[in-house]
Design a binder for these strands. Structure first.
Length: 476
RNA sequence: CGGGCUGUAGCGCAGUGGCUAGCGCGCUCGGUUCGGGACCGAGAGGCCGGGAGUUCAAGUCUCCCCAGCCCGACCA
């Protein structure tokens, strides 16, 4: 037994790390807190990237690239922004062997450099809206890191838009939030809550921050994407104004939104099991793998039969064939399960004789035997079924572990015990939020969207009148 | 950034201050196997995380540094 994955029950954190290392998604780099994304991990990110990128294009955004290095003074222009990011900045003080006159910051996010440029590009309402996205790496000096979930350097996408009105910026903020929701649910098969962040969890420099939040298998929350309404904060800091239709000047209204390689971590923790990775078919770089089963007598016949089937499906279903002769089938089964390939196609002498193939699905492990002529159709349906099943499985987990709680004693009990999501009324006072965090380690993940204003409710903590529902959870 | 644990072959680990540092898996070669992680035989592979010290003698003792993991404060 070469490969051993710690079970989730034994140690959830170790399980997560084992999967990443064993499935060769990533590896630790020599620099503390940073990681190498290996081909198998990067392939998943590339898939995510291409789906998201086309969603951004469909909503009217164009890609551009802004530089990695930002003058330190830029970061300092927006008061809240610098306050939020100062502790996490990596600063370049030397270049070309000489001390720099002004230190350069490695971008922790690009608002400042982008708004410095937007000032040059925006003069009139005719220049608006300006809808730009960039795919980039960023650096935030993190004290405590975890593969994919929090590393010093990571890859992400950041959209930065400028608008002529407050309402339009708000509309854009929510539009992109829903793009993220759609991506998470339809492609990652990962149900998410959408909602607004509280003041304390808001992005430094935003007027409002919204996020999508998913429940991982250990019942903790993971923030999987954020969308910010920046109001006029950056426009004012960088003095970006435009001339309105009736000749007046106004500061422009802004949004920014992003998702990162953290999504790969989310994907792992949402679906995978004690045998290894499980990738939802829509994001799986390899959707099916053919394992020919042969011995010395029938090797050439089985292989050629398997290869005919392989040729039939390889382009429409991005299939691989594992015709290695060293490892036995059982070894291959385990190996490809570890890699998370959604469907395994077993083809042996028995199947060859009966014109059939065996399909094994990664999510449930169940095997079915089907006529070879039905392969394309059945495989297509099966992939769809797996995608749906993963989503519903994750949704069920969240439902089972979401509670509506009115009594603080009960609230505490849940976070002392199994954990999960708790929906409770909250008065809006940051002090109650802080106390709850102190006492239970749970934070407000979101104030969910689409909930009616509450009547006759009392704050879970202080008991005073509350008109908001908040979702509490321990979070990554 | 604090507290704990750990660094010995690619990976997982043994290794009373003493002579040539081992075991399992993996790797290479040859053969037999092949429907849920096969077996036999022969090999290759080590600055014992780095540095300084104590000692006749250090993988082993002391100090410093580095890295990783776990637990806390800060964060996508």
């Amino acid at each position: 037994m070469a490969v051993k994955i710690t079970t989730r029950a034994e140690n959830y954190s170790q399980w997560y790390i084992d999967i990443i290392l064993q499935a060769k998604l990533a590896d630790y780099s020599p620099v503390k807190g940073s990681m190498v994304i290996r081909p198998r991990g990067f392939a998943i990110w590339e898939k995510m990237k291409s789906v998201l990128d086309s969603m951004f294009k469909e909503t009217g955004h164009s890609n551009a690239y802004f530089p990695l290095l930002i003058p330190e003074s830029f970061i300092k222009k927006e008061a809240e922004h610098i306050k939020g990011f100062a502790p996490e900045l990596a600063v370049v003080t030397h270049g070309g062997g000489e001390k720099l006159e002004e230190p350069l910051v490695i971008r922790p996010t690009s608002e400042t450099i982008i708004w410095a440029m937007y000032k040059k590009w925006i003069q009139s309402y005719r220049d608006l809206p300006l809808l730009i996205n960039q795919w980039a790496n960023i650096v935030r000096w993190e004290k405590r890191t975890r593969l994919f979930l929090r590393t010093t350097e990571f890859l992400w996408q950041e959209g930065h838009t400028a608008h002529a009105s407050k309402a339009e910026a708000q509309e854009e903020t929510l539009r992109m939030l829903f793009v993220y929701q759609n991506f998470a649910e339809s492609f990652m098969a990962m149900p998410v809550l959408t909602g607004e962040k509280t003041e304390s969890e808001k992005f430094a420099g935003a007027v409002k921050t919204y996020s999508i939040e998913a429940m991982m298998q250990d019942r903790r929350a993971l923030q999987a994407g954020t969308s910010h309404n920046l109001g006029q904060n950056f426009a004012k800091a960088f003095d970006v104004t435009y001339q309105t239709q009736n000749g007046e000047r106004d500061h422009v209204w802004a949004t920014s939104w992003g998702v990162s390689t953290r999504l790969v971590g989310a994907l792992i923790m949402a679906h995978s099991d004690d045998r290894g990775l499980i990738i939802p078919p829509k994001l799986a770089p390899i959707k099916a793998v053919i394992i020919p089963i042969f011995n010395n007598q029938n090797k050439s016949r089985v292989l050629s039969y398997a290869k005919v089937l392989f040729e039939r499906i390889k382009t429409s279903y991005s299939t691989e064939i594992d015709d290695d002769e060293q490892n036995k089938p059982g070894w291959k089964f385990a190996e490809w399960e570890l890699q998370g390939v959604p469907v395994r196609i077993e083809i042996g002498p028995r199947d060859m004789e009966n014109d059939q193939v065996v399909l094994a699905r990664r999510d449930t492990g169940k095997k079915i035997t089907i006529p070879a002529k039905d392969l394309e159709e059945t495989l297509g349906n099966l992939l769809e079924e797996i995608q749906n099943n993963l989503y519903h499985r994750a949704l069920l987990l969240r439902k089972k572990n979401t509670y509506q709680i009115k009594e603080y004693a009960e609230f505490k009990e849940i976070f002392d015990g199994p954990g999960g999501f708790i929906e409770s009324a909250w008065c809006g006072n940051p002090e109650c939020e802080a106390k709850i965090k102190e006492e239970t380690k749970a934070t407000i993940r979101v104030l969910p969207l689409g909930r009616d204003e509450l009547k006759n409710h009392n704050c879970i903590y202080c008991g005073s009148t509350a008109d908001k529902i908040a979702v509490f959870s321990k979070a990554y």
